[in-house]
């Protein structure tokens, strides 16, 4: 075992005298103290100091005689305070509880009604639980709203007309199923009048007109006409004006009368039809066969 230097030993003496050193180091310090008068003197002083603190005659000589009486008086005061608070339990007494507190909260306000044992609903649903519940609920609502907004933006304001048509068809179908886009016959009529169109008759391909609502595709304004087939699957027919034609021209180059663009996206077929005077754009999205698309296109263009 290496001989320890006095400097090292003296740094460890405080811990040694409290018996907090590990056994090996403790033994080395003890060995050193046996042979070193100077260190042993300092150790003796530390040990004497410990005795002063642990003995009632030392550091507490001035307070020990009255300590028990004072402690009893404090206990009585605390008991009385607790009893009076229990007798006047206020529903508001727990409102200053905070989730952000560390292990213990701020000092109890002397003027406020103090905390007592929770009663009634607070016994089963403590304020902290309710706060956590509210936090979770707020997070869920906020996340849903953000997701919903993002979905709407993604569907109606991003991408090209063809891609946007597929997205809008999907999103509007979901919202329609939730009943958000259901319109009354009067509202449908008013919107068709506003766009100065009539709902194309697509009964030749088994599609029945359901309703119309206003919509955006790639930021351009469209009327979204919703049809249902025999299997209750939604087929969307979109009608856009001059703004939509300009947008299509930007993305597809030259657009001649009766140009038909077709895009296959999974089992979804999207067709854009530019009508003869180039002032109107019809787009169709849904699960349709090429033959059905052809019939729909003809129906629209012949109008």
């Amino acid at each position: 075992m290496n001989q320890m230097q006095c400097t090292n030993v003296r740094e460890l003496l405080s811990t040694y005298v409290d018996s907090e050193l590990d056994p090996v180091t403790s033994l080395r310090v003890a060995n050193h103290l046996e042979g070193c008068v100077g260190c042993r003197q300092e150790f003796e002083q530390f040990a004497q100091l410990n005795r002063l603190f642990k003995g009632a005659a030392g550091v507490f000589v001035d307070i020990e005689p009255t300590l028990t009486g004072r402690a009893k008086a404090i206990n009585d005061r605390v008991r009385n305070k607790i009893l009076s608070e229990l007798a006047a339990v206020s529903p508001a007494h727990d409102q200053d509880d905070s989730l952000s507190e560390e292990f213990f909260p701020p000092v109890i306000k002397k003027t406020s009604p103090a905390t007592a044992h929770p009663v009634g609903i607070k016994r089963w649903f403590p304020p902290k639980f309710l706060k956590k519940l509210a936090l979770v609920a707020a997070t869920v609502v906020l996340t849903t709203l953000l997701g919903f907004t993002g979905l709407i933006y993604w569907a109606h304001y991003s991408g090209t007309l063809m891609a946007g048509t597929v997205r809008t068809h999907w999103v509007c179908t979901q919202l329609d199923h939730l009943g958000l886009y259901r319109t009354t016959p009067e509202q449908t009529q008013n919107l068709l009048l506003r766009y100065q169109i009539q709902a194309p008759d697509l009964s030749a391909v088994g599609l029945k007109f359901q309703g119309v609502h206003q919509c955006k595709i790639a930021k351009a304004d469209f009327a979204h006409l919703v049809y249902l087939d025999h299997a209750n699957q939604t087929v969307s027919v979109f009608y856009g004006g001059q703004e939509a034609i300009v947008k299509l021209r930007e993305q597809a180059g030259t657009v001649t009368p009766q140009t038909v663009f077709t895009k296959q996206d999974g089992n979804m077929r999207v067709t854009a039809v530019c009508t003869a005077n180039q002032d109107h754009l019809w787009m169709v999205a849904g699960v349709l066969t090429p033959e059905q698309i052809q019939i729909v296109t003809n129906s629209i263009c012949l109008r």
């Binding site: 004072r70 404090i74 605390v78 909260p105 103090a114």
Partner: peptide, 22 residues
Amino acid sequence: RMCGNAAEAEDIVQDTLLRAWK
């Protein structure tokens, strides 16, 4: 011994006990 004032010490202990109750 920590605060050096008997009255303040009693106040601290009372505060401690009430907080422990809470």
